Simulated scan of single mutants.
Amino acid sequence: MSRTRITHEDGIIYEFTPHLESVTTVEPGEKLTVETIDSLDGAVQSEGDLLESVPEEVNAATGPIAVAGAEPGDVLAVEIEEIRIAEDRGRVITIDGFGLLDDPDHDEVDVDIEAPRTRMTPISGTDSDSDSDDSESLVLEWDGLETDLEVPVDPVVGTIGVAPAAESYTTLVPHDHGGNLDTTDVTAGNTVYFPVFQEDAMLAMGDCKAAMADGEMCGTGAEVSTEIDLTLEVVDSPRTSIDRPFVETPSAWKTVASAETLEQACELAHSDLLDLLVADPDHGFDHTDAHMVASLVGGLEISQVVDPLVTVRNAIPKRYLSQPF
């Protein structure tokens, strides 16, 4: 089956608003390829390219893509089938005042962290002679290292979301609509579910990384341009409504929440998981029993701690929670 291709030249946004205008409309079940540019819009091409501050416009998201028939109250399912790196290198940067140990608003500021600094990450194994994507790696040929390091390529979509309910959020900010979630589970082989707040959902995505750790501590992953193969489906009249993004992996369901503090984000992600457990017809839990079960088999995971809001997820193995929709 042929795929509809949507490129950043068709349209990009730097803000998720309730009144987005789409660059194209697709039908549920349609297979797409979405091209994205790197989160820094090509501004960093060498280690001599330094960013003194976070750009006013960052994390360009390709779209918005209208999904025909999606209505408020529905759930949009985004099945990510493959993420291909579209260039031969990524970039990791530090910016003064941005990052886990370099934010003046936080208690701990590490004076030994140099900012700004740029490190390029050439990607090996991406040519046509490569037998498998498993051979792809980032090669850290950085001045001052005694030996080169290799980091496995494991692409992640950093920013992905739909039109929000009422407020507007830049593509640097994560919230209930999605946005800058910087969550390693937003990757090939998984499905991300979003609450639909506006007609046709209005999906957009970008800010991809060739590799990124949970937490994204320095403020970036290895930022790259990509091609993303995906399929969109609309769940109308879902058995269980959701207020925030929700991720399905082959083995687990994961609620995703963003808030001003880590504790608040954990509380939201946990409350969302309890609602799903209580709604599961296979168990008959009340909220207290669901709270207890989640304490036995759930698991809080940090997505990122460097954006204007922090993001966490709460994971539960699929054997304890049936398909919510």
Score class of each variant (00 low, 15 high):
residue 1 M to P: 14
residue 4 T to Y: 10
residue 6 I to G: 04
residue 7 T to C: 07
residue 8 H to D: 14
residue 12 I to Y: 03
residue 15 E to W: 01
residue 16 F to Q: 01
residue 17 T to S: 09
residue 17 T to Y: 00
residue 26 V to D: 11
residue 28 P to S: 09
residue 40 L to Y: 03
residue 45 Q to F: 04
residue 49 D to P: 06
residue 50 L to F: 10
residue 53 S to T: 15
residue 54 V to C: 05
residue 57 E to C: 10
residue 59 N to H: 13
residue 61 A to M: 06
residue 63 G to K: 03
residue 68 A to F: 14
residue 70 A to F: 07
residue 77 A to T: 08
residue 79 E to H: 15
residue 82 E to R: 15
residue 85 I to K: 01
residue 86 A to Y: 01
residue 92 V to K: 02
residue 100 L to V: 13
residue 103 D to M: 12
residue 107 D to H: 07
residue 108 E to N: 08
residue 117 R to E: 08
residue 119 R to L: 11
residue 124 S to I: 09
residue 125 G to H: 02
residue 129 D to W: 15
residue 137 S to K: 11
residue 137 S to W: 07
residue 138 L to A: 01
residue 141 E to N: 12
residue 142 W to C: 01
residue 152 P to A: 10
residue 156 V to R: 06
residue 157 V to W: 09
residue 160 I to K: 04
residue 162 V to S: 05
residue 164 P to K: 08
residue 164 P to H: 09
residue 165 A to G: 12
residue 166 A to G: 13
residue 169 Y to Q: 09
residue 173 V to E: 14
residue 174 P to E: 03
residue 183 T to I: 10
residue 186 V to E: 10
residue 190 N to Q: 02
residue 192 V to D: 05
residue 196 V to R: 02
residue 197 F to G: 07
residue 200 D to T: 13
residue 207 D to H: 07
residue 212 M to E: 07
residue 219 G to S: 09
residue 235 V to T: 12
residue 242 I to G: 11
residue 242 I to M: 11
residue 243 D to S: 15
residue 255 T to L: 10
residue 257 A to P: 05
residue 258 S to G: 08
residue 261 T to P: 03
residue 270 H to F: 12
residue 280 D to K: 03
residue 288 T to Y: 14
residue 289 D to C: 06
residue 301 E to W: 15
residue 305 V to Q: 15
residue 309 L to R: 15
residue 311 T to G: 11
residue 311 T to I: 09
residue 317 P to N: 06
residue 322 S to M: 04
